[in-house]
Design a protein around this nucleic acid. Structure first.
Length: 271
DNA sequence: CTTTTGACCTGACAGC
DNA sequence: TGCTGTCAGGTCAAAA
């Protein structure tokens, strides 16, 4: 479910409920996520006050002065603020219970998500240390994308999905941005021209920003009882539209398999 | 070093 | 209504 805009919106949504609050305890109903939830988590974070809630790539960092919880939502994870007394559902694996009665509840049917704990600088953590620039910062520039793709033979779609190249760009937004930029997902990254890199950087920014904006208004409040926060209703230009007419030129959208994952493009609009 | 593949899980949905 | 097969928004580790 979550791509960068969803993670960003989740972060913004939960932060006001967490910052300055004390963690009373952690309830782990099922520790078997992508990696086993550390048994020390409850001991480490309980009694601590949450100082900040930030995002790096698709990781959510919940920091205290004793250490930082690093959360990832995987393919199907979601976080919400609910009353701790609320009966947990089948896939509500972990609660961070706050002093006062609320809790941050992680739901994750597929269990590809993860929760880690570090006492060091989380950005120096093994999983985060080598991640590329955030796509919404100046660091992710046309020059950077051009330089980093030189000599690379893999498809540009796969290159965009590689977190070491750029942080947090997932399959939907990679495909949508490539459409906007007029570049086929199958093109070898190293063959993109400078102008194409320039358009692609702008397209990635625009696509992500738009989704974040729509998410902010879409996702209502994180106290909400139900109302599963689904995907943002971005009207896909290509993603999932195999054989449907291109919204620009009416040519049927094509689906190709790159690796194990689908890529979509308009054979006329994208070169 | 770069690129590809396999692995981790469960649910939703199409087709028989 | 079942059953089977396919696919899914992620990404790490190992193999090629």
């Amino acid at each position: 479910m979550p791509e960068l805009p969803e993670v960003e919106t989740t972060c913004r949504g939960i932060a006001p409920h967490l910052i300055g609050r004390r963690v009373a305890r952690v309830v782990v109903r099922n520790p078997r996520l992508r990696w086993r939830v550390p048994t020390s988590l409850g001991r480490e974070i309980s009694g601590r006050i949450i100082g900040s809630v930030t995002r790096r790539a698709k990781y959510i960092l919940i920091a205290t002065d004793a250490g930082t919880a690093i959360l990832h939502l995987g393919m199907s994870g979601s976080l919400r603020i609910v009353a701790a007394a609320r009966p947990p559902g089948k896939w509500d694996h972990v609660d961070f219970v706050l002093a006062g009665g609320d809790c941050l509840r992680l739901r994750d049917p597929r269990r590809f998500g993860s929760i880690l704990w570090t006492r060091q600088d989380p950005l120096a953590h093994k999983l985060l240390a080598d991640i590329g620039p955030e796509p919404l910062t100046r660091e992710f520039s046309r020059d950077y994308l051009y330089d980093v793709t030189r000599g690379r033979s893999r498809a540009i779609r796969d290159t965009l999905l590689d977190a070491h190249i750029v942080a947090g760009v997932g399959n939907i937004y990679a495909n949508e941005a490539l459409f906007r930029a007029g570049v086929r997902p199958t093109r070898a990254a190293g063959r993109l021209t400078f102008d194409e890199c320039k358009r692609l950087v702008a397209a990635i920014r625009a696509t992500l920003n738009r989704a974040i904006r729509s998410g902010g208004s879409t996702l209502r409040d994180y106290h909400a009882a139900d109302g599963e926060a689904g995907y943002f209703q971005l009207t896909a230009r290509v993603y999932g539209r195999n054989a449907d007419p291109c919204r620009v030129c009416r040519t049927p959208i094509r689906l190709v398999r790159l690796g194990q994952r689908s890529a979509f493009y308009c054979p006329k609009c994208q070169v």
